[in-house]
Amino acid sequence: MKQIPLGSTGLMVSEFCLGTMTWGRQNSEREGHDQIAMALDHGVNFWDTAEMYPTNPVRKETIGGTEKIIGNWFGRNGGREKVVLATKIVGEGTSYVRDGAPITGASLRDAVEASLRRLQTDYIDLFQLHWPNRGSYHFRKIWNYTPPATPAAEVFADMTDVLQSAAKLIAEGKIRAIGLSNESVWGAANFIRLAQALGLPRMASVQNEYSLLCRQFDSDWAEFSVMENMPLLAFSPLAAGLLSGKYAGGVVPDGTRRVNSPELGGRVTPQVFEAIAAYLGIAARHGLNPNMMALSFVRNRPFPVIPIIGASNLDQLRMNIDAADLVLSDEVMAEIDEAHRAFPQPY
């Protein structure tokens, strides 16, 4: 698989990132390790996890479980130097982790140290803030989003505290870069502004949701991403499996994410299946696998983007990896544009 720069970090990563959030819940440790082996065999050296994983649902007793599965792989097989590893600190409000406390410089250090132990490594390549303390409009919160009333000066003080802690952790060799997730353009711009003014580490990337069904990144974020060389790590590029068509007609196959999360995080709406049918129709007319079409679309946007691919089995993972070689024709892209105009925000 092609290797590309991760923004301005100096790190080279595979053009697809291996997502791991099902390991320890929907997938066993053995299945997670089988996915790791396949990913490595295909040149996927960029992996993403988080301290709160596995998900669907998040439970107190499973916090950190996915990191432990990855750590056990390194403990048994070695090869840490072959991988660019990303993880995250939980944002404010998750009572299972640090009693729901906000992200601070001190909690950033605590989270890094805990992740290092679980991952059985002495460094993390990209350490991300899972969501901002001030909240966000992601995960369907856009429908009733109210901007935070926190004074900007307080937000800037919190950002500075985090960046100062990150600088120390980078100097100690415990992390190599720091990034954002579920963030807004305003938040990212001010993190960069403060870093430049104070000589502190620059936020390297942003991990937000992006797919054929969720295209909030296409406007201000797209411009910001290009101008600031801040790549998008696109999570849920298959819309939690909806774009595969496996849930059409209300079917909930055994072993799928929808068994434990019937609404798929608010993605199942009265209008979503009509939108899905439009994209499945495009794939069928052009002889394309719908998963591969959806992943190719995300990978080839006019801004720097790396899709995070997850899978519940090896056949799915192999197919998703193969999408890296697919280039969509102008005809397919024109039909996708038409479908997007007809169904601009189906959830």
Rank of each mutant, 00 (worst) to 15 (best):
E51W: 01
Q128W: 00
Q216G: 07
W23I: 13
L238W: 09
S115I: 01
N289S: 13
A166K: 03
M12R: 14
N72S: 12
S107W: 03
G199W: 11
N190G: 00
V44K: 04
R285D: 11
A278G: 05
P5Q: 06
S312T: 14
V259I: 14
A234T: 03
L232E: 02
Q120K: 14
N229C: 08
A197K: 10
G281A: 04
R25C: 12
L108S: 01
R215Q: 13
L200A: 13
K88R: 06
N229S: 12
A284H: 02
G19M: 12
Y279F: 15
Q26L: 15
A177E: 01
D125V: 01
L213Y: 08
E338H: 03
M159T: 01
G266D: 10
M1F: 12
H138N: 11
I69L: 10
P102Y: 09
Q345H: 13
Y279S: 03
R30A: 15
L314N: 02
L295F: 07
P147A: 13
L295Y: 05
L238E: 09
T256F: 06
N56G: 06
E331H: 02
H286N: 09
V84F: 02
E209Y: 06
G79M: 09
T20R: 04
L129N: 03
D322L: 11
T269C: 09
W23D: 07
S236I: 07
P302I: 01
T49Q: 05
D337S: 10
V272L: 04
A177G: 03
A101E: 11
M12H: 08
N72A: 08
A189I: 00
P231R: 01
F273I: 03
I309F: 13
L232Q: 05
M1V: 14
S329I: 11
A171Y: 02
N260D: 15
T104G: 05
A111N: 04
L126H: 00
E335C: 11
S136C: 15
T121N: 04
E51S: 01
M203C: 09
S236L: 09
R76V: 00
L18D: 02
S244V: 09
V252I: 13
I103H: 00
A166P: 01
W23N: 06
T49E: 04
R117K: 15
L200Q: 12
P54G: 12
T256S: 15
W186T: 11
G93H: 10
E223S: 12
Y53M: 07
A334R: 06
R318S: 12
G245I: 07
I36C: 03
P132M: 10
V298R: 07
T87D: 02
L194I: 15
A248M: 12
M203L: 14
P344K: 03
Y145D: 08
M230C: 15
R202H: 11
V97L: 04
V305P: 00
T146Y: 01
L18H: 09
K82W: 03
V272P: 05
G93P: 13
N77K: 14
T269R: 09
S244E: 06
A197D: 08
R59C: 11
E172K: 02
A204E: 01
A37M: 07
L213M: 07
I170D: 01
N144L: 05
G65W: 09
A311S: 14
P102N: 08
G75M: 12
V97P: 00
T269Q: 08
L129R: 07
G173W: 05
